[in-house]
Simulated scan of single mutants.
Amino acid sequence: MLPEDAMVYDVSRRLADLFSDRHILETDDSDFDLIRYAAEGKCSLHLMDATHAQLDMTWDTRERQARTEPRNAFYEVLWRGKRLHCLSLTYGLCDTERHFLIAEREQDAHDLFSAVCTWGAEVRGEILVWRGGAWSRDKLLMKQIESASFDSLILADSLRDELLADFDGFFSARDLYARYGVAWKRGILLLGPPGNGKTHCIKAMIQRLGRPCLYVRSFRPAKGTVAQSIEAVFTKARAVAPCLLILEDLDSLVDEASRSFFLNEMDGFAENEGILTVATTNHPKKLDPALLDRPSRFDRKITFDLPAPPERLRFLTVTSGQREEAARIDETEIEEIVRLTEGFSFAYLKELGLSGLMAWVRDPVPGTMGQVLRSQVDTLRRQMKTTKPKPIVEEEDDDG
């Protein structure tokens, strides 16, 4: 079997022989998504009958339907009164894509390439997710964001006001930043134990602001280096700014090997104009001090602590009120459950409600939900002890 580079060269050479009177433009640019461009009605795309098209059939579990997608195919492209052809190949373990755009005139190929890439680089009311070294559109994440709001996020009033002031104020303050000679960029780090609303807060913020959003799940690429992946993310953010750049679980995204590359990109003051970077971490002690303690990278650090009694009371009251009357907690018992759930995260409070409801439906006696929940508290507290992460051991400096 030919090495990948040799195979691509062989295809290029053969096409040059077959279409010696045409111009051939080659690209593996991720923004050149000709199929999506055609699906939006920007051009017409037809499989050529004279050539074999390799089609993959997949099952979409979310939509519950089969999908047929071309893997390797030769197309006729009709665009702005011009007729071009495109050979699209997918190959290798990493499913690398390469396109060969064939046109009578070099300018036609360049014009179509520019039009498709310009359109593909735009973020239009959607979330672009970076993982595996490529951008994709996550329909499930988009649905979660569309249903998220600060109204359903239970926080201390002071924290809620602080968050809204930071998020709402950034994009409207461009002129103010310029007046005082300050780079229009901001970094906010959300930290605290898991299950206390950081991710919900980010989704509600994305929904509230309605700005282009880039969501990073991992910098580790299927092909290439982490440094190249980091550079690609920030390059995209600068191209679509003003925008949101979300870095989920920052402690797992950036390690010692990639730290300097990441810091260099974060420090691009002029280049990062209009980028609101929001990162989360459950383990701030794992972050390098250069990330955690330097204000120019993350100007604000907002802690999502375990819910205090007032927040637990609000959570239990709201969730209980959403159920049918027979399954609600008696008002006289809520205060006791609030006391018993000291140290519970919002995630554990949610699980308490769910497991309690499942236990209650086995013997659905009206007015007994509080008793059922009290018994479930002990079960969950034992679970919390068995799943508690080991403490992080700080290494001492060699010089003492």
Results as ranks from 00 to 15, higher is better:
127 I>G: 05
185 K>Y: 01
216 V>K: 03
190 L>F: 15
146 E>Y: 04
139 K>Q: 13
134 A>K: 14
161 D>N: 13
178 A>I: 11
205 M>W: 06
205 M>D: 04
100 F>K: 08
109 A>P: 06
107 Q>R: 14
230 I>D: 00
176 L>N: 09
154 I>Y: 03
167 F>T: 01
176 L>Q: 12
231 E>Y: 09
231 E>K: 13
98 R>H: 11
127 I>H: 01
186 R>W: 04
200 H>V: 09
123 V>K: 03
190 L>P: 03
178 A>D: 14
219 F>Y: 13
92 G>R: 08
174 R>L: 06
221 P>M: 12
172 S>L: 08
199 T>F: 08
138 D>G: 06
197 G>Y: 10
194 P>W: 07
126 E>I: 05
226 V>C: 08
88 S>N: 02
136 S>R: 13
87 L>G: 06
107 Q>S: 15
205 M>T: 13
216 V>H: 02
208 R>Q: 08
148 A>N: 03
117 C>V: 15
219 F>D: 01
113 F>K: 04
98 R>N: 02
135 W>T: 00
126 E>C: 07
201 C>S: 12
204 A>K: 05
87 L>M: 12
118 T>C: 09
146 E>N: 12
110 H>L: 13
152 S>L: 11
136 S>L: 13
179 R>P: 04
96 T>W: 00
230 I>K: 08
131 R>D: 12
135 W>L: 03
209 L>D: 07
143 K>F: 07
132 G>V: 04
88 S>D: 04
160 R>W: 00
115 A>G: 05
103 A>H: 04
209 L>V: 06
135 W>R: 07
179 R>L: 14
181 G>C: 12
155 L>I: 13
142 M>Q: 15
132 G>Q: 11
134 A>I: 08
121 A>L: 00
186 R>Y: 01
191 L>I: 03
95 D>Y: 10
99 H>V: 07
232 A>G: 07
199 T>H: 00
216 V>R: 04
232 A>F: 03
103 A>Y: 06
214 L>V: 09
204 A>L: 00
201 C>Y: 08
142 M>R: 07
107 Q>Y: 03
186 R>H: 08
104 E>P: 01
109 A>Q: 01
216 V>M: 00
183 A>C: 12
106 E>A: 13
136 S>P: 02
190 L>H: 04
209 L>M: 11
117 C>T: 15
164 L>C: 07
198 K>T: 10
125 G>T: 07
150 F>V: 03
198 K>W: 09
126 E>M: 03
218 S>T: 14
103 A>N: 08
147 S>A: 15
181 G>E: 11
131 R>N: 11
156 A>N: 13
220 R>Y: 11
193 P>Q: 14
224 G>E: 12
102 I>P: 02
109 A>Y: 08
206 I>F: 04
233 V>K: 02
169 G>T: 08
213 C>V: 15
187 G>H: 02
93 L>C: 01
100 F>S: 05
226 V>Y: 01
227 A>W: 04
89 L>G: 07
150 F>L: 11
163 L>S: 05
179 R>C: 09
222 A>S: 14
175 D>W: 07
105 R>W: 02
153 L>W: 09
176 L>P: 08
138 D>Q: 10
206 I>R: 05
88 S>H: 09
142 M>C: 08
116 V>N: 05
